[in-house]
Computed example of a mutant assay.
Amino acid sequence: MTRILVVEDEIFVATEIEHVIEEMGFVAVGIASDERSALALASTVDVALVDLNLQDGPTGIGIGRTLAQAHGVTVVYMTANPSQLGYGVPGTVGVLSKPVTERDLRAAVAYVVARRATADAIPPARLQLFSEPNVGPTK
């Protein structure tokens, strides 16, 4: 069973994401609104959906990098500010620009879960991939 962490400081957004994850049959491990709480759950998750600007500031980029590189978590950023990610973050999959519809969220979650299991998954149109996951952006 895939375990998914929601790293988001807007509680209404986070609980809606959690609800969709659970409806899809995955385990929503919890909601982290800052770096400390996200990294405390790092060893318990397979996938993380990470916003950039959290309660403790713009820590999302570093959180995603640490989750992916140090813990082997499959990371997708969800943000209204995708340009802050530049060409991408090494080890992470990509970014889904907010606002996100439920359909977009479902498609992105299904893709990253399938991608974690096999390389044959087709990315949804709204998910901007950085480069090969776990390799880093091409220059």
Rank of each mutant, 00 (worst) to 15 (best):
T74N: 08
E16G: 05
V13E: 10
Y77D: 08
V89N: 06
G86M: 10
A119P: 01
L129K: 04
S33T: 01
A14H: 05
V27W: 08
S43W: 04
R36M: 04
T15Y: 01
T2C: 02
S97C: 12
R115P: 00
Y77P: 03
I11F: 09
S83W: 09
I122E: 13
I31N: 05
D34K: 03
G57W: 02
V7C: 11
A110Y: 01
G91F: 11
Y77W: 08
T74H: 10
F130G: 08
L41Q: 14
I11P: 14
S83G: 04
L54N: 05
T138H: 07
H71I: 07
D9R: 00
V7D: 07
S43T: 14
G136V: 09
L67S: 06
F12A: 11
G86H: 12
R106I: 12
V7W: 04
L127M: 05
L41W: 03
D120G: 13
L5E: 11
L54Q: 06
K98R: 13
V45G: 07
V6N: 05
H71K: 08
T2M: 15
P99Q: 09
P124W: 10
I63Y: 02
G91A: 12
V13S: 11
F130V: 06
S37D: 08
G91D: 13
R65H: 14
A80C: 03
A114P: 00
V20G: 06
R103S: 15
P123L: 06
T118M: 06
A70N: 14
V100E: 02
V109G: 03
V112H: 03
V76H: 01
G136C: 10
S131Q: 10
D51T: 03
V95A: 07
E132Q: 12
T15A: 00
T66V: 13
S37F: 00
I31V: 15
N53I: 09
V100N: 04
V95R: 07
T118K: 12
P123Y: 07
V76D: 01
A110P: 00
N134P: 00
E22I: 01
I61G: 03
A114H: 10
M1Q: 13
A80P: 02
T118V: 09
E102R: 15
G30F: 01
A38L: 04
F26H: 15
L96P: 01
L41M: 15
